[in-house]
Design a protein around this nucleic acid. Structure first.
Lengths: 216, 216
DNA sequence: CCATGTTAGACAGTAGAGGTATCCAATGAC
DNA sequence: GTCATTGGATACCTCTACTGTCTAACATGG
């Protein structure tokens, strides 16, 4: 199909698609001549994936590019994809010592040790450099500085529930043969399911709050 | 304390604090004269909370303002806070019929019904207009259009785990007396724990993936 | 062969978010 | 009296995610 047809079928404007091509989110089409290119259903799928990641999940264009790049790069190696590539997709990766405030509860290196100890205690096999470890440590440091500290003991039951959630996630990948299909599904489930899980948690919170106050 | 001291103690620049005051994220200090104002520890706490919400969690300034506003408004009514105010803090609230693409898997009104049915099946007591219902429905619609549909049956075990997560969350609020303290703690735990829970899930995914591939 | 439509590529422009910088007159501390 | 600080106002800046316009080269239907 032509670029204009790709645009019509995806609901994404031609200029925006050109922008994604420029930014390397979408691979170029098969060039038929200097002024003609053909796109296939893979492009349409990819485009829908891009819109879901940026729109529904709210990822930035550059994060989306990195994610899609990791998808191509580690084809067949679902470990690297789950553990490293999808490891941290928060707002900021906070690289380097940026000189935090003097008084603000000493940068969470203590939390990093706590996280490593937790992972150890759980018996999890997780790469030492997994970015999610850092994300977790940062969040704990932040919670502590706000006066709501969570130690290993408090975190452990959450971790056990995360374990079971992850098992459900991996179950969803069963029965898929094609490797690239598995990889894409893994990305979709890991990243796009996040808003759904958070929404479920909020609904459950409201319910639980209602149940506990029912005695009043 | 003075504005400059508040700045020094929080690590946030004076201009940025002024910006937050302008935007209504931080309440004004006690005005001593036309050119003198005093801030207390509440301001410092609030400021740290703002930085945590925008920095760690990545919320926008306007979302943060809404959240903090809800905190003041519903003091004492933890229901409204959990169910309605914190209901949807995703990237976009998608208000109104914005004319989605022609071909893109018919806007998820079917998903909305599915969500309502799920909540019903679970026996959850949740406000009909809870924004998290919409968030959930949108995510499901998006997953379906990407060829990875999750129906009620697949979602149910996730919901049961969310239930237990919410119970842990509410446990954290036990033993707190002061109402405004409970409210702030609820907000912090609901919103700031999110990155931590997602990080735990990703670590657990890597572990589970390693476990399942251990036979190879 | 010509009118019309489409393409890649280049580049400028835009709107919103999240600050940052500067100036101001008033005022408090020393 | 001098100097730092304040609230208030306004201008400016950087980044992100697009959007618009232009050009020269084709393609396609009549």
């Amino acid at each position: 199909m032509r670029l204009s047809e790709l645009s019509r079928r995806s609901g994404v404007s031609v200029t925006t698609i050109k922008y994604y091509l420029r930014e390397g989110l979408l691979p170029p089409g098969r060039q038929l001549s200097a002024t003609q290119a053909e796109y296939d259903d893979d492009h349409l799928r990819r485009l829908r994936l891009i819109r879901a990641l940026t729109g529904v999940r709210g990822l930035s264009v550059s994060t989306t590019r990195d994610l899609l790049g990791a998808l191509e790069e580690h084809t067949g190696d679902i470990h690297l994809l789950l553990g490293l590539s999808l490891g941290s997709i928060g707002p900021a990766a906070s690289a380097g010592p940026a000189g935090e405030p003097a008084d603000a509860a000493s940068e969470g290196s203590a939390e990093r040790a706590e996280v490593d100890k937790l992972v150890d205690e759980l018996g999890w096999v997780v790469h030492k450099g997994a970015p999610a470890r850092t994300t977790l440590a940062e969040t704990l440091a932040s919670l502590r500085s706000l006066g709501a500290p969570l130690d290993r003991r408090a975190l452990l039951p959450y971790a056990r529930l995360a374990e079971r959630t992850a098992a459900l996630d991996l179950d969803q990948l069963e029965g898929l043969d094609d490797s690239s299909e598995v990889m894409e599904r893994a990305l979709v489930l890991t990243v796009l399911l996040e808003p759904a899980l958070l929404a479920l948690r909020r609904l459950a919170q409201e319910n639980e709050s209602a149940r506990r106050h029912a005695d009043g």
